[in-house]
Design a protein around this nucleic acid. Structure first.
Length: 642
RNA sequence: GCCCACGUAGCUCAGUCGGUAGAGCGCAUCCUUGGUAAGGAUGAGGUCACCAGUUCAAUCCUGGUCGUGGGCUCCA
């Protein structure tokens, strides 16, 4: 027998240990301190995440993953999902397990069961999970060959697991994790025992297709979450509560902004006066910014003849998302899902010279798309929405610069609304549905990346995420709750210019085909307002507030002079209301606070006497008494500064 | 579209283990004329989402339809 080999283990602080080959991370943690050992959930050996029982057989770097490590989160979530699956199998032995990964902040596990779980089942499962955790059952990895595992799971009746294994390449060594009576196919790593789970909660159930494919069976999914401490769990649950509080559907109703009404139809928004006013403020700003940047405004119809959509390729590639056609005087018309074909007609209205380019057409164009009923969600996902659309038609030489300008414009525009964090994606060619040849896609994608690199913008790749007509840059914004929302999209489009035979006369007097970029900064005004509501809790900056000020007479004796002051506000284009109800001043203030009106101008006997007004700023309270002109100046200054 | 849950006054929600319903807010009228987040009284509001079925009787049970919500898929 050969003597035991010695190996060198390097810790993150640079310290080196000489240990016997076969030593595990658990051994090393324990040798440092019992507390560290208890805190260790997994290990990183040569940058690879492994269980704490992974034997070290060569010189290695070793990092212990404790509750505090960023990597711990996912492992903990994943292990908790296994505990949940174990509890479910104990309570519902006929349930078949499928997959149960960790996702951002949560985990889920999909089961195939006869009757879906109810909310009541969740507490039963939670209780059993707690028992499993209290028993502190060891979790151990075992490796098998593919065929051994297929046999094993076949015997267990876990047909989904068999299907997963069968889809994995032959020859690969597979592992299972065993905890008591529960065995699950899993790559790992996992925590060493169930007792390491400190705080968890099951959140909700949902239906989910096997492998996410609607042709497959609908499974029952349970979502849950897990944290290193009760305190952190509490924090997360508070976050969920806060998100509920900010729900734009709720705030939209209470602030009388909009409604999605059954009589009108699902996914179709009717904007109340306050909501429409808010929209108008956004539109006014949008138009000004576009005119400043050399865009031209256009306006196009809501429907167009079928040949238009045939030429554009929409009927081939987008028909599933279009509303059915309607017959008018023998011709077939479609409601527009996009504005582009119309803008192209405007471009084609006359012969264009390279000197005319770039041409930038902008339109707040309302489009309609048939979305599956189940995906509709407040303002975030609707069937009729207004795009802040524009098409940039340019020469190949202008392309890079135009894309850069667009990215910059997008950032500047969105920042105005108080969003400062972005995630940028470059979405590449879809696998199946696409037009044009591969080289064109390569070139276009390169142009998008070039622009971002040149601007020093960090981005990720979204492989296969492009539109059918070209690659795109998507910008997601992060809101106050650190959630991200898709808004800006800048889409390269080499397809339509080809299909519509767009041309310009170049400097050498030959006809050339221009490039076209399709873009929306807010994306959909509806969604953008939805995000804005959730970000501000409906407490809009004064420049956007539907009602910027309310004039409150303290008693009926001041009604007349209050009306006079409101006229002055109107002359200064300040959006105001006059509260002439016979309520007390306190009640009127309360109403204004609840409706999130930023300025309250209060006029009582004292103010009326000197033609003055008392200013109350929402949230911060009484600002004192001012002359009418001073008061106007104060609110105007705030608006301008925003 | 699919799975599950839900749908009661303008809003937020009680309630009826089958006998056609109630609160608060809001609204109207009257009293009060107020000093920085709710003054008081009275009153009007509901085919209990819709359509069938079971029943002497359905808001309640059953089935279907529509809508909403949580997800899946998709996406601005």
């Amino acid at each position: 027998m050969s003597p035991i080999q010695k190996i060198t283990v390097t810790l993150p602080d640079g310290a080196q240990l000489t240990v016997d080959s076969g030593t595990t991370a658990a051994d090393i943690a324990r040798s440092i301190s019992e507390g560290l050992y208890q805190n260790t959930l997994a290990a990183k050996v040569n940058e690879q995440l492994v269980d704490i029982y992974f034997p070290l057989t060569i010189d290695s770097s070793l990092e212990l993953i404790t509750y505090q490590s960023p990597e711990a989160r996912e492992i903990l979530l994943h292990s908790t999902s296994h505990v949940m699956a174990q509890a479910v199998k104990q309570l519902f032995p006929e349930a078949k397990v499928t997959i149960g990964p960790a996702i951002e902040n949560r985990f889920y596990y999909d089961f195939d069961v006869e009757t879906p779980f109810t909310e009541g089942d969740l507490s039963k499962i939670e209780k059993r999970m707690q028992e499993i955790i209290d028993q502190d059952i060891p979790i151990r990895r075992q490796e098998f060959t593919r065929n051994e595992l297929i046999e094993k799971f076949k015997k267990m009746g876990e047909t989904y697991k068999v299907e997963i294994i069968e889809s994995i390449d032959e020859g690969e060594v597979l592992s299972v994790y065993i905890q008591g009576d529960f065995t699950d196919l899993c790559r790992g790593p996992h925590i060493p025992s169930t007792g390491k789970i400190k705080a968890f909660k099951l959140l909700n159930t949902a239906g989910a297709y096997w492998r996410g494919d609607s042709r497959n069976k609908m499974l029952t999914r349970i979502y849950g979450t897990s944290f290193p401490s009760k305190k952190e769990l509490k924090k997360y649950l508070n976050f969920l509560e806060e998100a509920k509080r900010r729900d734009h559907r709720k705030i939209g109703k209470s602030l009388e902004l909009f409604e999605i009404n059954e009589q009108v139809g699902p996914g179709l928004v009717i904007w109340y006066p306050r909501g429409a006013t808010l929209l108008q403020a956004i539109k006014d700003y949008w138009i000004k910014e576009h005119l400043d940047r050399g865009y031209e405004l256009v306006q196009t119809p809501h429907i167009g003849k079928s040949n238009l959509w045939e030429t554009s390729g929409h009927l081939d590639f987008y028909r599933d998302s279009m509303f059915d056609s309607m017959k008018i005087e023998g011709d077939e018309y479609f409601i527009k899902p996009m504005n582009c074909p119309f803008h192209i007609q405007i471009y084609k209205a006359k012969t264009r010279s390279y000197r005319d380019l770039p041409i930038k057409y902008a339109e707040l164009g309302t489009v309609y798309r048939y979305e599956l009923s189940g995906v509709l969600h407040g303002l975030m996902r609707v069937r009729g929405f207004t795009q802040d659309d524009a098409h940039i038609i340019c020469t190949p030489e202008q392309l890079n610069e135009e894309i850069m300008k667009l990215v910059q414009f997008s950032f500047d525009f969105i920042r105005k609304f108080g969003f400062n964090e972005f995630e940028v994606y470059v979405a590449t060619k879809p696998k199946d549905k696409y037009v044009g040849d591969v080289d064109m896609w390569e070139e276009a994608t390169g142009a998008l990346k070039y622009a971002l690199d040149k601007l020093g913008v960090q981005y990720s790749l979204d492989e296969g995420g492009g539109a059918f007509y070209g690659p795109k840059i998507d910008i997601k914004i992060r809101d106050a709750l650190n959630r991200s929302w898709q808004c800006t999209t800048i889409q390269f489009d080499f397809n339509l210019s080809e299909r519509f035979k767009m041309e310009y006369i170049s400097s050498d007097n030959t006809k050339k085909q221009p490039y076209m970029i399709h873009r929306a900064i807010m994306g959909s005004l509806e969604r953008f307002v939805g995000v804005l509501i959730e970000n501000t809790v409906g407490d809009f900056p004064v420049w956007l507030a539907p009602v910027q000020a309310v004039v409150i007479p303290i008693s009926e004796h001041q009604n007349e002079i209050a009306a006079e002051f409101q006229q002055l506000l109107k002359r200064h284009s300040i959006r105001s209301e006059l509260n002439l109800k016979s309520d007390t001043m306190g009640a009127k203030i309360r109403e204004a606070e609840l409706m999130k009106i930023p300025y309250m101008f209060i006029i009582g006997e004292r103010e009326a006497k000197d033609k003055k007004v008392s200013i109350r700023r929402r949230k911060s309270g009484d600002k004192g008494v001012f002359s009418w002109d001073e008061a106007i100046k104060i609110i105007e200054t705030e608006i301008v500064q925003q």
